[in-house]
């Protein structure tokens, strides 16, 4: 009876719902909020090789950021990388999805082949696209044809290779999501467009593409991919390990790569407080860009 009355007491309490979500709340606080707050705290301290006791230094790290040309160069590279890679991935992904959205034989085979990049470890993608990867064979082919070779160690080429590598890895995934979004367009809607006189091109322009681009799935995928592309590390890491030998390391030092160098290259003196401030800025930038893209996704296509 006692047990029952105490249960009744909990049931009557208006805190009861909170009691049930407590485990989830505690988990989130521990694994997400705590590291975030800790990073934020670190970014206000001087923690590093020269001051192993974290000293509160206010906004000094952020001040240093403003004047750090290497940081701004890396941020610029990150933005270029994100914009180019995401555009390329969505463009190719949608084109592939449209061309595979048929009942042709062999579709399943193509879909399976295209799944391979998704299953590949990102670091392996970086190695594959590194100068001694398959571009070497590509150059051999070019030389057999008597065409000029591609200098893979050229800084601009490195950036292009990085974008291609990322697109190679992610386009199939975007294609698969777009394919399922395409297949969720009701057949009636397409048929009604057909009956009311739309040509195949008009159907694509007025019905299929706008429905695809305005679907919440697309907006969500775009947001996730932007955040993820800002965080991309493995490809620039494996590529810069090659060019590092030639001293061209700044050409593909994205923000994440710069953070890695600051942390592990003894020359910089392990400036943990400073690295924390960079990661906070990176987080803010990626979330802001992703949020803008999320809102803008439905406006990229106009009907009138």
């Amino acid at each position: 009876m006692d047990g029952k009355s105490s249960i009744d007491k909990v049931r009557r309490s208006r805190f009861q719902p909170y009691f049930f979500i407590l485990p989830a709340v505690v988990t989130v606080l521990l694994v997400e909020v705590y590291p975030l707050l800790y990073t934020l705290y670190l970014s206000f301290t001087s923690l590093g090789m020269r001051s192993l006791q974290a000293q509160f230094i206010g906004l000094a790290n952020y001040g240093r950021l403003l004047g750090d040309r290497e940081f701004w160069a890396s941020m610029q590279l990150s933005v270029i990388f994100v914009v180019c890679a995401i555009s390329l991935e969505f463009l190719l992904g949608i084109l592939l999805a449209l061309s595979l959205n048929t009942r042709l034989k062999g579709r399943v085979f193509f879909e399976s082949i295209l799944l391979i990049p998704i299953a590949t470890a990102p670091i392996a993608v970086g190695i594959l696209f590194a100068p001694l990867g398959f571009f070497d064979d590509f150059n051999i082919a070019l030389s057999r044809l008597g065409l000029p070779l591609i200098d893979l160690l050229e800084p601009k080429t490195m950036m292009t290779v990085m974008i291609l590598a990322d697109a190679w890895e992610w386009t199939p995934f975007i294609m698969l999501v777009m394919l399922s979004a395409l297949q969720s367009i009701p057949r009636d809607v397409l048929e009604s467009a057909e009956v009311f006189g739309a040509s195949d091109f008009q159907k694509l322009r007025l019905i299929v593409l706008p429905m695809l681009l305005r679907s919440p799935v697309t907006a969500f995928l775009l947001m996730i991919r932007i955040i993820d592309a800002f965080k991309m590390f493995e490809i620039s890491f494996s590529l810069s390990s090659w060019v590092g030998l030639r001293g061209l390391q700044f050409a593909i030092d994205t923000v994440t790569m710069y953070m890695y160098k600051l942390t592990f290259n003894p020359v910089y003196g392990w400036p943990m407080g400073y690295v924390a401030s960079i990661s906070i800025i990176l987080l803010l930038v990626s979330i802001t860009v992703a949020a803008i893209a999320f809102k803008a996704a439905r406006r990229v296509w106009w009907i009138e």
Partner: peptide
């Protein structure tokens, strides 16, 4: 002739309106 050249109008059971318009 394809549907668009037949000059007919079709009302579907599901109405088939274009949700984005």
């Amino acid at each position: 002739l394809p549907p668009r050249e037949r000059d007919v109008a079709f009302v579907f059971q599901s109405f088939a309106l274009y949700p984005h318009m």
